[in-house]
Simulated assay, not measured.
Amino acid sequence: MLKQLRPALVMIVAMTAITGLLYPLAMTSVSQAIFPAQANGSVIERDGKIVGSALIGQYFASPGYFHGRPSATTGPDPADPSKSVAQPYNAANSMGSNLGPSNPALIDRIKTDAATLKAENPNAPVPMDLVTTTGSGLDPHITPEAAAFQVPRVAKARNLPEDRVAALVSQHVEGRLFGILGEPRVNVLELNLALDKLAAG
């Protein structure tokens, strides 16, 4: 019996050490050496303070900021922790709405959001990503079209010329990875930080 237990125990200890300690330490060391910014969360700083991550969206409600995609994430209700309430971009509870395309609640929400956006910019079609959520609810990017759609509202709220705000959007369009993967996109947090800088002067 001991003859059979000994190899099993040795294997458990060895594999625990290799996969639970050595491998994670090696990967952490390599990632810190090669990609330190990404390994530390792709944080974005302003004036020496961490204001967010390039990988996780934030909720901007003010008309003077560009808005990201709608987020369906929830969190505990402060008044009653047994209930959930909407908490957009709650990184502790990544989730989608799980509503199908024929769900009346989803259809009504999209119609309401589209009407609100259309009132802000009646001269342009409402981009799809401004009324639909993602599977994670944390997407930090919008399409260049979605950013351009918001230029008139943001420029008016900031009392800035539309062409300057539009030029700022163009400067923040990220291309396809290696020129072929993904789609052009705009990081909303980085764009809004640049907008603050532009407005400050």
Rank of each mutant, 00 (worst) to 15 (best):
M1G: 05
L2I: 12
Q4V: 01
R6I: 15
P7I: 00
L9Q: 06
V10D: 00
V13E: 03
A14N: 08
A14K: 10
M15P: 02
A17H: 04
I18T: 06
I18E: 01
I18N: 01
T19H: 11
T19S: 13
G20Q: 01
L21F: 15
L22W: 10
Y23F: 12
Y23V: 13
P24Y: 08
A26D: 07
M27W: 09
S29L: 15
S29E: 13
S29C: 11
S29K: 13
V30T: 12
S31Y: 12
S31D: 11
Q32P: 11
A33H: 14
I34G: 07
F35T: 13
A39E: 03
A39Q: 10
V43Y: 10
I44M: 06
I44K: 01
I50P: 00
V51I: 15
V51N: 09
G52E: 02
G52Y: 05
S53K: 02
A54N: 07
L55I: 12
L55M: 15
I56N: 06
G57R: 03
F60C: 07
F60N: 05
F60Q: 02
P63F: 02
H67I: 10
R69K: 06
S71I: 03
T73P: 01
T74W: 01
D77W: 08
P78V: 05
P78D: 03
A79S: 14
D80M: 04
P81C: 09
K83Y: 05
P88Q: 02
P88K: 04
S94V: 06
M95T: 12
N98W: 04
P101K: 07
P101H: 07
N103W: 05
P104C: 03
A105W: 08
A105S: 14
R109W: 13
I110N: 07
I110F: 07
D113T: 13
D113S: 14
A114F: 08
A115D: 15
T116P: 04
P122N: 06
A124L: 04
P125W: 10
P127Q: 08
P127C: 05
D129M: 01
L130Y: 09
V131M: 10
T132Q: 13
T133L: 01
T133Y: 00
T134R: 03
G135Y: 10
S136F: 01
L138T: 08
D139Q: 05
P140G: 10
H141S: 08
P144M: 00
E145M: 02
A146D: 01
A146M: 04
Q150G: 11
P152R: 01
R153F: 03
V154W: 00
V154T: 02
K156Q: 14
A157D: 10
N159E: 06
N159P: 10
L160W: 11
P161A: 08
E162D: 08
D163P: 00
R164I: 11
R164D: 13
R164T: 13
A167T: 10
A167C: 08
V169C: 09
V169Q: 02
S170D: 15
S170Y: 09
H172V: 02
E174I: 10
E174T: 11
G175W: 06
L177E: 12
L177S: 14
L181R: 07
G182W: 05
E183H: 14
P184F: 00
P184I: 00
R185W: 04
R185F: 09
V188I: 03
L189Y: 02
L191I: 07
N192K: 13
L193Q: 03
L193F: 08
L193R: 10
A194Y: 05
A194S: 07
D196T: 09
D196L: 12
